[in-house]
């Protein structure tokens, strides 16, 4: 049962990822990423990361991709054939990707790490992956990371305003 779920999720995630890279119309690529993220959330569920799966869908596939959709629509799809890149890169790119994949897979397969060949301990606490568990850690062990992340979000908003905000009507900017 778990195997079926895994392969279905993996197929969807890989398919979505390939579609992002290979589709000509950037708008379709954006939509392909949404599909990829949904399937990836399914995989997260298999790893007992239920809060993160939900957060991924809500925050990422929900909010972030909406930004993408708006910008893709605004900027206009620049249709480009998928393999019209600089001829050297056209060959070099997939080779580098393949090399990366093979190298990492070999490292994983050849590792003597205990537990990597298992499904993970079966006796983990029931609240593993729940919002309560993650939330407690955010406010306890990783408080500073939590606060730094909120500051980062603020700065991203400031940056977006600086870069893309309209300046024409702002005469009294106080600079």
């Amino acid at each position: 049962m778990v195997e079926i779920a895994f392969f279905a999720g993996a197929a969807g995630a890989i398919g979505g990822a390939l579609a992002v890279v290979l589709l000509k119309n950037p708008f379709y690529s954006v939509l392909a990423l949404v599909v990829h993220l949904v399937f990836l959330a399914g995989i997260f569920l298999l790893l007992r990361a239920q809060f993160l799966a939900a957060a991924q869908i809500v925050v990422y596939a929900g909010a972030v991709m909406v930004i993408y959709v708006f910008v893709a629509a605004y900027v206009g799809g620049i249709e480009e054939p998928a393999f019209d890149a600089h001829p050297r890169l056209r060959i070099f790119g997939p080779i580098v990707a393949a090399a990366l994949f093979i190298e990492i897979s070999i490292a994983v397969a050849g590792s003597a790490l205990v537990g990597i060949g298992t499904e993970g301990p079966q006796d983990i606490p029931d609240d593993f992956g729940t919002p309560a568990a993650v939330g407690r850690m955010l406010l306890d062990d990783f408080l500073i990371a939590f606060e730094a992340a909120s500051i980062l979000l603020l700065l991203a908003a400031v940056a977006a305003i600086v870069l893309a905000g309209r300046r024409g009507s702002q005469t009294q900017e106080g600079t």
């Binding site: 778990v2 195997e3 895994f6 993996a10 995630a13 890989i14 990822a17 390939l18 992002v20 890279v21 995989i43 298999l46 790893l47 790119g93 997939p94 580098v96 990707a97 393949a98 990366l100 994949f101 990492i104 897979s105 994983v108 397969a109 537990g115 990597i116 060949g117 298992t118 499904e119 993970g120």
Partner: peptide
Amino acid sequence: MSIEWYLVLAALLFAIGAG
């Protein structure tokens, strides 16, 4: 599914992104 499978999937997605 052992953890290895998930890691290989992650490696594949990473490589696709890099490519």
